[in-house]
Structure formats: C-alpha cells, structure tokens
Design a protein around this nucleic acid. Structure first.
Length: 571
RNA sequence: GCGGCUGUAGCUCAGCGGAUUAGAGCAUCGGUCUACGGAACCGAGGGUCGGGGGUUCGAAUCCCUCCAGCCGCACCA
C-alpha cells in the first residue's frame, strides 16, 4: 500500500491510460478540494477534444470509486474529495505504524553523501555549517527512507601547508602541540605556523623540505602528520557531538586517502585518449566549458610540477565510490562557488565511463550565510566565526529565554534543553530556506518561539506530548475517525501527506520542503486545537482526538529527527 | 566577455511537471476566548511576482532579451 497520494495517482493513471497511455494525471493537493488533477488539459490538447468533455469522461470511469469522489471544475480540472470511509481507513492504518505510512525503500540504494569537509589543523567555522547541517539532514532522511548511506567527510588533510604545520609541531614539541590541538585551539596552532612561515626564511625552507618528505612517504614525517590528523578528527567529533551531527571518525576519508589512486587516474585518462598536455599541465577539456577569452577550459588533473590537483582527487573519489562502494547515488554537499568544478569533474567522469548514466550524481549546492550587512558573515573584527562559539551563544540565549519563561527545571536539564533548542534554531533556519539562496544569519529570529522556526516546531510537539501525558492510558487502536469537522479533517489530510513530504525532500535534495511540510502541519494543529477540545471531550470523540494528537506528535518528532532536530517532551 | 545562482508584501521566505482569486511567518492594525500549555486563534491592510517581449485558452512558473546583486572562469583545495 502506498501513500494516499500514490493510491490516487495510481487509480487516476488507470483512467488516463485508457485515453492515452502514459499520460501524467498531474495530481496535486488543492485548496478547493483535497486533491486536484490538472493533467486533463494537456491530454485534451493531444486528443484534440474539449477539456471538459475529457474530464467528464474520466470522472465517469469510476476508477476512484470507494476512494474519492471526482468533480469536473473550471476549464477541465478534476477536483477530488476523499471518501470519509477511505480517509478514516488510511488514518487508522497509521495508528499502529511506527513509520506513519512511510514505505521502506523496496530496493535500497547505496547513497554516498559527501559533506562537512573541514580542514585538518584548522578551526571549524561558520563556513562549514551549511554543508554539515544540510548533509546530515539528507543522510538521516535517506536512512529513514530505507537506503544505505555512506557518509564521506572529505577533510582537507593533504597539500603544501602540511610541511609548515609539521615543522611548527616539531618546534612546539609534540606534547605541547598535542595539548594545544586537543583542547580545540586549532586557530592558535594554525596561525602560529603561518606566522613562523611568513617571518622566517629558514622555517620556510624546512617546510618545503618537509612537504617533500611527506609526499615521499617518510615514516617519521607520516607519524607527525598523523598526529595532526588524529587530533583534528578528535576535535571535529566534539563539534559534531555539540551540533548533534551523525558523522563519525569512520566517515572521515580525507584527500590523502586517494593519493595512491591519482597516478592511475591520469594513466587511465591518457589511455582513453582524453588527456591533453597544455602549458605543461595534463588536462582534460570537457566540451562546453570556456574561459574568459572564449577558449576551452581545462580540468587540470596533473600540474606542471607533476603534483596532482584536486580534480584528480575528486575523480579518484568518484571511481572509488562507484566502483568499490557501489554507489547508486552520490551527493556532494558543497558550496555553490564550486559548481563549475563539479560540473567538469562529473562530465569527465562520465566521458571516462567511471560514472554510469544510471548513477545519480549531484552537486547539492548551497548559498552563503550573510551577516546583517548582507556580506559574508564575519565577527566585528572581521574574523570568521567559530562554529562552537556560534552554538554557545545560541545555547546561552536559549537558556536565558527558558529562565525568563520560568521553565521549571534544574540547571542541568535546563542546559540540555537549551542546547536542543539552540541546535533546532540554527539548523532549522539553515534548512528551511531553499538551499541555493543566501540567507542572513539572525539569532533573534531563529530563536523566536513563534513563527516558522525550529523552536516553534519543538513547542508544537511538546504541547502535544503534554496533552497525551494528561490523557493517561488510552487505547488509541480503538479510535474511529469521523473527521466530521474541517479542522480535524485538514489535520488528517496533513498527516497523510507525510510520505510525500519525505519523497519530495529526497527527490530534490531539498530539506526545506520537509520543513515547509512540518510547519504546515503545526499550523493545522493549532487550528485543530481551537476547534476541537481534546481532554474535555468524551467517549469516542475523545479517543479520536487523542489519536490525532498522537499521530501528529509522532509525525513532528519523526520529521524533526530526519532533519537532525530533537523533539523534547517538555519545554 | 562567457557561465552559474539569486530577484515574489515593509522585513524573512514558500509557490513542487503551466492552470481556478499569488500564499505563509514576522511586523502593523482590529477582534475572539475565565486559556486541554495564550509561546493561542480569527480577521484586515499591504504585491506592476526586477523590466520588456514571446509561446498559450491560460505564465511568478516555459522561451528570448535587458537590469541589479553575488559567485566562478588553468596548475590553492
């Protein structure tokens, strides 16, 4: 059994198929009915018949009997209203269903999601927020849908800066360096290295020599490098824990992982005849890309100095993910400025046969986080904002808000609740706008407990839990759904839309669609409360209303969880 | 110059394959109810959907063009 939408779509398709096989009924939710089908217009055109006639013919086919009634409206729309018995049955099926009607993928896909990607020995800052939050929401939702998710945290753990960082580590002394890194003071460490590099010629030449040793596989150098990597990964894990992000150290597969595969990438591209030498660099020129002079634009896989560019690494990663991991789908949650780079990498990978057409491969691009001045978000002194500082400030404000509201909690649980609210505020603000847009970071708005915010949705959930607690033990399985008033019917329809909201989010790698759904559900909920007293109702009506509350609470909790947002029992 | 993204109400944003009267939230104004959690609900005002053109019975949505902002355009990832 599919979602209510799927049942309708399937039945309508039967009708449409009789007139022209394969016609899309264009089924949508409607303001004038429960659903509407707009596909008659296009169908009538191909048939060369008046739309209303075609609509009437389809309505008369009775494929929706027992499910919904159909009326022809306007120039030829089909307005569809669910039969009360069908609606009640659909809803009843949700009561005992942990997944609330969300089907588990029949043939699970292997989805590789590349996200977060901080740099070793560098602080995680606000620039990492979107990739981390969006990627994690996609990962959680793909898992919920029953797919196999392989998260890849493509950390920057290789390249020329590591000569400098290792030399600086030696100058500090291993113990002191570890002490500094382990407390998460990555900025101080990195800037110390940078300062030494800029000021001291001898340090610079040591650094260069160290890069050569590192690339040559010198054991001691590799050991030192590992210290940097391990300390950083441990620190990242702390940040992820604070953000409640599911990434683990096992998901860290940095750039260095692909080092051994890079020569093979170049050799195979060469063997395929795709490689050209240009200005001493070895390049592929995928068709359709030009530079500012209108000349062909290269994807440089090997630089003039024999070093490999990140294009080579990304190509090696594609091969690894498709070939070894068996990816059916790959999502790269990386900022929009990289769009051209990924378009070229994917084009080359397709041309080389490393990326079959059947594998969905998408750059999940996102816009920038802006400050109040609508420029890239920075501190007053012009520095990038540390992720932990951002979160701490939000937690502090949420805590104060709880104090002000007189929330009756001990200090410890209150702090935990404040943390959950703060995460919700920041994540929801990030996830709820269409991801390609830039957005202005405004803690005041994010933390507001009213309007389209994370805390508001948490509150909507907590209210429901409160009602359900007060109701005590009630057998909701015995609920019969009369849905005899508009607000409860609207709520029911909202609940039935859950599987479609998830599908829609995944289809577009668009978390904001799920956000929109949850907010809409919360609004249906408030309308329902007003019209339908729950606890003071009696008999079957009370059970029905309690069941609606319970379904709504679980839908909110499951949806928020898919977004990486906790749904506390009380607020 | 070429390419990408963005442009919808005072502000922040939805609008998913074209479809009936363009929707929310915040803010503003006016109401409701002795509140199952008022962190509520209802209503109102407020929009040349950046401009122009085209396709169509019908365009915020598709096509073209122009404008504005941001970003990218060969060896740093």
């Amino acid at each position: 059994m599919g979602s209510t939408y799927e049942i309708l779509a399937e039945r309508l398709a039967r009708s449409f198929d009789r007139l022209a096989p394969g016609t899309d009924p264009v089924l949508r939710t409607s303001e004038r009915a429960d659903f509407q089908a707009n596909g008659v217009m296009a169908l009538a055109k191909t048939l060369g018949r008046p739309p209303r006639d075609v609509a009437a013919e389809i309505a008369a086919m009775n494929d929706l009997d027992g499910v919904a009634t159909v009326e022809v409206a306007g120039p030829g729309f089909l307005n569809i209203v669910l039969e009360p018995a069908f609606l009640a049955a659909q809803l009843g099926a949700l009561v005992g269903d942990e997944r609330l009607g969300l089907a588990r993928a029949a043939s699970p896909k292997t989805v590789v999601i590349d996200y977060s990607a901080p740099n070793v020995a560098k602080e995680m800052h606000i620039g990492h927020l979107r990739s981390t939050v969006i990627g994690d929401a996609l990962a959680r939702t793909e898992r919920l849908a029953g797919n196999r998710v392989i998260a890849r945290n493509h950390v920057g753990d290789w390249g020329t800066p590591f000569g400098m960082l290792i030399e600086y580590l030696l100058d500090l002394g291993e113990d002191r360096a570890i002490a500094e890194l382990s407390i998460g003071d990555l900025n101080t460490f990195y800037q110390g290295a940078r300062t030494a590099f800029d000021a001291d010629e001898a340090f610079r030449s040591r650094s260069r020599a160290r890069v050569v040793l590192l690339q040559g596989g010198d054991a001691e150098t590799r050991r030192l490098w590992h210290i940097l990597v391990d300390q950083s990964v441990a620190y990242f894990s702390q940040v992820y824990a604070k953000l409640d992000v599911t990434l683990t150290p096992e998901d860290v597969v940095g750039e260095s992982y692909y080092n051994d595969a890079l020569e093979g990438v170049v050799a195979d591209l060469d063997a395929l005849g795709l490689l050209e030498e240009s200005d001493g660099a070895r390049c592929v020129f995928p068709p359709g890309f030009t530079n500012r002079d209108g000349e062909r634009l290269p994807l440089i896989v090997q630089k003039r100095d024999e070093g490999f560019g990140y294009a080579a690494t990304d190509l090696a990663a594609v091969r690894d993910r498709v070939g070894r991991l068996g990816a059916n789908e790959m999502l790269y949650v990386v900022g929009a400025p990289q769009a051209q780079h990924f378009a070229m990498v994917f084009a080359v990978a397709r041309a080389a046969g490393w990326l079959p057409d059947a594998v969905r491969c998408e750059h999940v691009a996102f816009g920038s986080i802006l400050g109040p001045d609508r420029k890239m978000y920075k501190t007053r002194s012009g520095e990038t904002v540390k992720l932990v500082d951002l979160l701490d400030e939000a937690i502090e404000r949420a805590y104060e808000a709880l104090v002000e509201r007189g929330t009756d909690l001990e200090d410890e649980p209150r702090h935990e609740l404040a943390t959950q609210i703060a995460r919700a505020a920041i994540k929801y603000a990030d996830l709820s706008t269409e991801r390609q847009r830039d957005y202005v970071f405004d803690l005041n708005r994010m933390l507001a407990f009213e309007g389209d915010t994370g805390p508001y949705l948490q509150y909507a959930h907590a209210r429901l839990r409160s009602i359900l607690r007060r109701a005590g033990d009630v057998d909701l399985g015995a609920a019969t759904f009369s849905l005899d008033n508009a607000p409860s019917r609207d709520l029911a329809l909202g609940l039935l839309g859950w599987p479609d909201a998830v599908a829609s989010m995944l289809e577009g790698a668009a978390p904001h669609r799920l956000c929109t759904y949850l907010f809409d559900l919360a609004q249906r909920l408030t309308a329902f409360y007003e019209a339908c007293p729950v606890l003071s109702a009696e008999g079957a009506v009370r059970v029905e209303r309690l069941a609606l509350c319970e379904l709504a609470a679980r839908t909110l909790a499951l949806g928020l969880d898919a977004l990486g947002i906790a749904a506390p029992e009380r607020m």
